[in-house]
Amino acid sequence: MGVFDFANPTRFMNFSARVLPWLWGLAALVLAVGLYMAFFTAPQDYQQGNTVRIMFIHVPAAWLAMFAYALIATSSIGTLVWRHPLADVSARAAAPIGAAFTFLALVTGSLWGKPMWGTWWEWDARLTSVLILFLMYLGLIALWRAFDDPGRGARIVAVLALVGAVNLPIIKFSVDWWNTLHQPASVFRFDGPTIHPTILWPLLVMALGATLLFVALHIAAMRNEVLRRRLRSMQARAARSTIAARAVA
């Protein structure tokens, strides 16, 4: 059985039901180890002191904010090219989770910025482009909700989601293209990370834990969306049967 065989709603439901409890457990375990490292093994930063500990939630939240949108964009290609129902289910399930992680990145960034930069907010390229990402998530969620039939709205939302994906490289390279208060990339660089390993490892463990949590949340939300669509089609069928019965009577 190949990977694409799981792109069937029933197989996905069966497979995800088996995998999900393990994912929740693994995410909790890795996050617990990451939090221990963040508070008990990671030293203070020589410039930022203890506020560097905010980085252990801010950076994974920011990475996942972008990852979730990349997932929506990829799923949108599946909706537009193959019209696969699970692709739209995946995109729709990822949007509220992505919005929550983007909100978390913005708030924790603000809480880190106040003691370090002396301001809660600055209209610079990185902060503004992440705020736009948050607004795009809200826009996609609102547009999905505007259609009673998810099948009708899927292609329109997929086009909009793909157009919005242009914001992802802008967020990533905003710190290189414009003058900004935000520090440049310090982990994913061509010349290697610039963070000391005693701080880098807790960050990577927290990022892994947050990613596992995201995957568990996404799969659980996808299951809910599949159930919601089954429910909708059964309700429509029941309504049609009632109308037909009345017509015969």
Binding site: I54, I57, P96, L213, L217, A220, A221
Partner: peptide, 23 residues
Amino acid sequence: HAGFIAAAYAIAVMVIAGLIVWV
């Protein structure tokens, strides 16, 4: 800066707990 660190982690816990309860 303990207050800023505590607030950041408290909000993270609330957002993540909210997502888990929602799903």
